[in-house]
Amino acid sequence: MKPWLLAIAAALCLITLPWAAFAEPPMPLTPAADNPAAHLGEPTAAKIAAGLAAHRAFYKLTLDTSHGGDVIAATGTMSYEVMDACDGWAVQQRLDMTITNRDGQDVRMVSDYATWESKDGLRMRFRMRQTTDAATTEVTSGEASVDHPGGAGEVRYSLPKVNVQKLPAGTLFPMWHTATIIAAAEQGKKVLALPLFDGTGDTGAQDTSVVITSWHKPEPFRFAPLAALPSGNVHVAFFDRTPDASEPDYEVGMHYWENGVADQLNMDFGDFVMQGKLDQFKLASPHHC
């Protein structure tokens, strides 16, 4: 199971499309300081990135579907916190699931994930630890960078072993990936193809195929800070960057708000699908740098 650990949201039907036929080039990754349009009305990725919200969110997870595999029951939680670190975002996330197999055995799987990502989208530090029944099954840590907005870069792993890998041109880190999707939604785009590096594995960047199925004007919602914002449904499929990667490694349905907060999630791990709902939410107090 791949531990996808981003701000993820609302339940969607999982969509299968011939991605290569429809995908558009990545949107430009342009820091606000170098992009005059970011200060105007145009919903650029830089403008959206500047408004991503520091917040705490807690999700309750339940089993949505089992595809005839070994999983017959599953429950869990996910906590997610974004902190404004002035020159970057510090993110901490914990995914905790207990899965019951056909033999009646409970298996607890926990992923702890932490990142720091510069607000210009050029640098990232990451650390991920996954355990199964308290035994560590996967660890990654290191730092990554891209040469310039929209350029290529590299990731330097310190765990599980010292290793350097190249990142393709256009690679986005998680917060800018979110901002790019939201900006595209506000521009009326429907399909994107975006390279992503998130640090949850030791194989470098992945390809993501994004389908934006809706984008709505503000509407009533039980968390007042979100009710004043537009929001919409997104489906993302993650592919390994290998020639034979015809099937996604992982898929997620999301409902994003304009400030990057997600209120539900639908995570397809292949053998089973977990659905989550936002149970607790709090915006962080304004941070003065």
Rank of each mutant, 00 (worst) to 15 (best):
P174G: 04
A73T: 14
E219N: 14
P174L: 02
T137L: 09
F239C: 12
A205D: 00
T44V: 02
D96R: 04
M128H: 07
P248Q: 01
T242C: 14
K277W: 14
T77F: 06
L122R: 07
G253Y: 02
L196S: 02
T178N: 02
T98V: 10
A37M: 09
E42Y: 11
A53S: 11
F221A: 08
T65I: 14
R222G: 13
R129E: 05
F238E: 00
M27Q: 10
V139D: 01
A169G: 08
M1S: 13
S141F: 13
A185N: 03
K60M: 12
D249Y: 10
A90C: 08
F197L: 02
R156D: 15
N35V: 02
Y59E: 00
G88V: 04
A23E: 06
P26N: 06
R222K: 13
P195W: 03
M124H: 07
P195I: 04
N266G: 13
V191F: 11
D240C: 07
P174E: 03
K277E: 12
A184Y: 00
T30R: 01
D96Q: 09
R241M: 10
P36E: 05
S285P: 08
A74D: 02
D133N: 13
A152D: 05
W215D: 00
L52K: 04
V210C: 04
M27A: 08
I182E: 03
V164L: 15
Q206L: 13
P26Q: 03
M27W: 09
Y157V: 07
A134L: 14
R127I: 09
D268H: 11
T203G: 04
I8G: 04
D268W: 05
A224C: 06
D271F: 07
V210L: 03
V146F: 01
D87P: 02
H287W: 15
H39A: 10
T136R: 11
Q92I: 12
A9N: 05
G51P: 08
G51D: 15
A134Q: 15
E186I: 05
E247K: 13
C289A: 14
G68P: 08
Q165C: 06
V155G: 01
F238N: 01
L278V: 06
L194D: 00
G270I: 03
L192A: 02
Q275C: 09
A32Q: 08
